[in-house]
Each structure stands twice: as structure tokens, then as C-alpha cells.
């Protein structure tokens, strides 16, 4: 199994987390939304796989590079 680590691409605030640990996701599915620069930015799954870890919570202010989630595929 390979792992894909999804990191925060832009400093901002997590306004929703749209997946749960254990979910099967398809490439392009929304993992969470980050509000930054007055925009709601979706963070998408880069691969098909299974979410094994989510490290952010709604309301959290996140810096670039922080891990959002890990997908195994």
C-alpha cells in the first residue's frame, strides 16, 4: 500500500471537513474546505484510495505544510 499525504497548500481556516477516517475517496473528491483570502477553497483528493487519518478540525487555523489527511491506495 502506498501513502499519499495531503498538506495544507495555503494558510487559512478549516471551515468544513467533508470526509471521515475510513472513507473510500475518488480522485477529485473534496476532503475539506479552507477559507483563505476571503475565498472558500476546496482541498481535493489527488488519488483514489482510503482515508486513514485526518489531522485537522473545523475552525482550526492552519499553516502551509500542515498535514490534512493521509490516503492509502
Amino acid at each position: 500500500m502506498a501513502q499519499e499525504i495531503i498538506e495544507v497548500p495555503i494558510t487559512g481556516k478549516i471551515i468544513s471537513v467533508d470526509t471521515n477516517v475510513g472513507d473510500e475517496v475518488q480522485e477529485g473528491d473534496v476532503i475539506c474546505f479552507i477559507e483563505s483570502m476571503k475565498m472558500e477553497n476546496p482541498i481535493l483528493a489527488p488519488v483514489n484510495g482510503k482515508i486513514t487519518d485526518i489531522q485537522v478540525a473545523v475552525g482550526e487555523v492552519v499553516e502551509t505544510g500542515k498535514v490534512i489527511a493521509i490516503i492509502e491506495y
Binding site: P9, G28, S36, M37, N41
Partner: peptide
């Protein structure tokens, strides 16, 4: 992002 979900070009 649509072409490549890894990309974040903002």
C-alpha cells in the same frame, strides 16, 4: 485544480 487535483495555483 480540476485538471490536476494536486495543484493549488491560487
Amino acid at each position: 485544480q480540476k485538471e490536476n487535483p494536486r495543484n493549488f495555483l491560487l
